[in-house]
């Protein structure tokens, strides 16, 4: 399965970032496993340590299994002065997790991230590919409720 994804791209090193993106996006747990790294390493003829170097450098990749929904809350100055710390507290208490952890039911992973470029609507977070802006505690409750139902 990992090899099928690799084969969509020519076997050159510059495609590493795209292969990693696609493997992570298509994995139900949104992460890149050791097994996947082995496969990529052989396909691109690039050492495993290089792949881990890249993998751990960029904030969008994970080497640990994550939830169905990845919450990335912005903690940069524009969101911070709009009280993103209150939003963070709310998320933590609602989900019973700390930053970097996944809920027991495997539904949500809570992460912090740098500026998402949607500062006009600060505070902002992304859940998977969707942006949520102008966050309030009430809004957080209803977003989490909605996603928990499905």
């Amino acid at each position: 399965m990992f090899l099928d994804i690799c084969k969509k791209y020519p076997p050159t090193k510059d495609n590493l970032i795209y292969i990693l993106h696609e493997i992570q996006d298509t994995h139900p747990q949104h992460y890149i496993s050791e097994e996947a790294v082995q496969v990529i390493s052989e396909y691109l003829a690039v050492p495993v340590n290089h792949i881990y170097g890249v993998l751990t450098f960029y904030s969008m990749y994970s080497t640990k299994p994550r939830g169905k929904y990845i919450i990335r809350l912005c903690e940069s100055p524009p969101c911070y002065i709009k009280s993103s710390d209150i939003i963070l507290r709310r998320l933590k208490s609602l989900l019973h997790v700390n930053v970097g952890e996944t809920t027991k039911d495997g539904l949500f992973t809570l992460e912090l991230c740098a500026c998402l470029g949607v500062c006009g609507n600060a505070p902002v977070m992304m859940i998977n590919d969707d942006v949520y802006g102008d966050l309030t505690e009430e809004k957080i409750d209803s977003i989490i409720d909605k996603l928990s139902e499905v």
């Binding site: 740098a114 470029g117 500062c119």
Partner: peptide, 8 residues
């Protein structure tokens, strides 16, 4: 790769 906080 716009990443400067506050810039969009």
């Amino acid at each position: 790769d716009e990443g400067e906080p506050g810039t969009f």
